[in-house]
Structure formats: C-alpha cells, structure tokens
Design a protein around this nucleic acid. Structure first.
Lengths: 154, 154
DNA sequence: ATGATGTGAAACTATTTTAGTTACATTTCA
DNA sequence: TGAAATGTAACTAAAATAGTTTCACATCAT
C-alpha cells in the first residue's frame, strides 16, 4: 500500500509552472520532466484547477497559478489530488458481528483512534508550503528560483 | 487508497485472544466475530507470530499471546501485518528527468519531507497500546475485560 | 490408533486503484 | 486556416486486497 504519486507529481507540476516562462510549461514539457505521459499531467492540473490552485484553459499553453507557492501547503495539494479521502487513510472492517461484545465496538473505537494518527500526518503536510519544497530544491541546485527560469525544453 | 483492514483486524484478533478462555479462540471463532473467512485470520496470526506477538501451532486451537496487551502498541501490530513499508507511506515518482533542474531533486526532497509526515502518524500509533483499545471497548460495553471471558461461541 | 478438530500454506478469483496510453473534440492564436 | 494545446473518455496492464477452496499435517480425546 502507498499513497499515489499523483501527490508528488502535482507538487512537481506546481513548481515547474511557477518558474517557467509564461506559455512554456505545457503538459508535454512537464511530462518530460516527470517522465510520464502528458495526459497524466493534464489529469492532475485538472484536479488542481477544481481546487482553485491553478487556472487552465483548453488550447492555451501552460496553466496559471492562482496563488503564490508560499500560499499553497502540501496539504492543499494532497487534498486537491484526492489521494486519501477525509478520514479514510485507514480502512476499518465494518461488519463485525453485533453479537460479539468486542466486535460490536471495534469499528467506532478504531476509527476514532486512527483518525488521530491521520490528523497528525496531515498536520505535518499543512506546515510545509510548496514554496518550501521549491526552496529546498533551489538550494540543492545552487540557484534562487524567483530569478530563475526553466529552459523551454529539456 | 487506504491502509489495509489487516491492521484493525489484527487488533481485533489480539483482543479476542486475550479475553477468551484458552483453546476457544479458534480462527473460526475469531472469523465469525470479524465476519470474514478463517483463512484471513490465520494469515494474520501467522504474521503476528513472525513478529513474536503471538505463538501459534498447527493443530492447536487458539494462538497464545507472547506479551500482555499493555506491552503491544498499535505500531507493533501495524508493522507486524506489514500494511505500510518502512518509509513507504507515500509513493514518490522516481524517474524524473536528470536534465531538469527541478526534476533531478524531486525524489530526494519529497521523500525527506514525506517521511516526516509518516513518522508523525506512526508516532501516534506508538502511543496507544492494544490494551488501551480493549479498555475503550470494555468501557463502552460496561465491563472490565480482565475479569471477562468470551462465550466460546457467538 | 484413530477420527475429529484445527492450523499452515498454496492456489485461484474478483475487485479496486493506479499509471500509462490512444484517440478525438474543442479552443486558442499566429 | 492550420498548428499547437487542453479536456476527457475509454482502454490496458499491473499491483494489492480480501475472500475462497483445498489439502497436508499436527494435536488430542477417546
């Protein structure tokens, strides 16, 4: 089990959109950086659009960010691409025998406890912005991204 | 996406093993409380056995706990039933283009950040024991489990 | 010792999710 | 008008999960 790569790919996409010259970050371009199919990227920008993080129009190259990266947390992205449902990180079996003194309380008890664990995880995501991620990468790369623009092709 | 029900079912199983009279908590019995197939339960007790939480022998009814429930954390169970690999809660795409200044750092950067989120979640699991879960259930049921034994059949 | 009972494990199925792919209608713009 | 994009549907392949059947083997009471 693991959480879909849609999430990190969405982060990757947002960063490229941010540092690319207008009209150059096509789904083809992003896909070639991520090393996947352009449709995979479009599916993701479509989800980011529904979450109001980007604005994309048919026929127009390169989606536009609707907020600065510093206003987008990893939790925002995680929720936008729908990798884990609300309180659904853990599946809990939900048809235990009502006749069993233990079984009849397992679902509610475990659900409550595991929701706390999920919250702790999501809280960490809420504390990091996509700008922080971009900053980490810029530092590794030895550049400062706001002054830096991608080449229109790799 | 969500984490397998093996985990809560394993907790359910441990509690039943603890409060059942010796030799009565067969995989059949537990399965009828969980409402699943006995083989599913045996697969789980087998994993719990490999993690040294229970001892089960072929032919002998009802696995035996190797530790009191108060010495078994939810994290122990979660690891025993192998629902999430070490640092593998989040999948991160791992073949970004090396030619891309962003792509070439995405994997390491995201992996580091997401590992922190996973740790936060697992830390919550480490803070709760199976005895705590049993206690919650006993309270809902209005009994005290150490003095309470399951009926050999539901 | 024998038969009933139970566990361990392999093998198979159905379902779900993800990622990748093809294809095509539609929009934008030079 | 035509090249270049996007949006979306539909299909495939792969992986994980849960359930099921089957059977060898261990245990134990009689």
């Amino acid at each position: 089990m693991n959480i879909s790569t849609r999430f990190p790919v969405a982060v990757h996409t947002l960063i490229l959109l941010n540092i690319s010259q207008p009209g150059t970050a096509t789904s083809d371009f992003i896909a070639s950086s991520v090393n996947t199919n352009p449709v995979v990227i479009r599916r993701i920008t479509s989800m980011l659009g529904r979450a109001n993080l980007v604005e994309a129009k048919a026929g127009i190259a390169g989606a536009k960010l609707k907020k600065p990266l510093s206003d987008i947390t990893l939790l925002d992205v995680y929720k936008a691409v729908n990798v884990v449902g609300e309180g659904q990180l853990f599946a809990v079996h939900d048809n235990s025998s009502i006749k069993c003194e233990v079984g009849r309380h397992m679902h509610s008890t475990m659900t409550t406890i595991l929701a706390r664990a999920q919250q702790a995880m999501e809280q960490v995501l809420a504390q990091t912005t996509v700008a922080d991620v971009a900053g980490d990468i810029a530092q590794l790369e030895g550049v400062v991204f706001p002054d830096y623009f991608m080449q229109p092709s790799l």
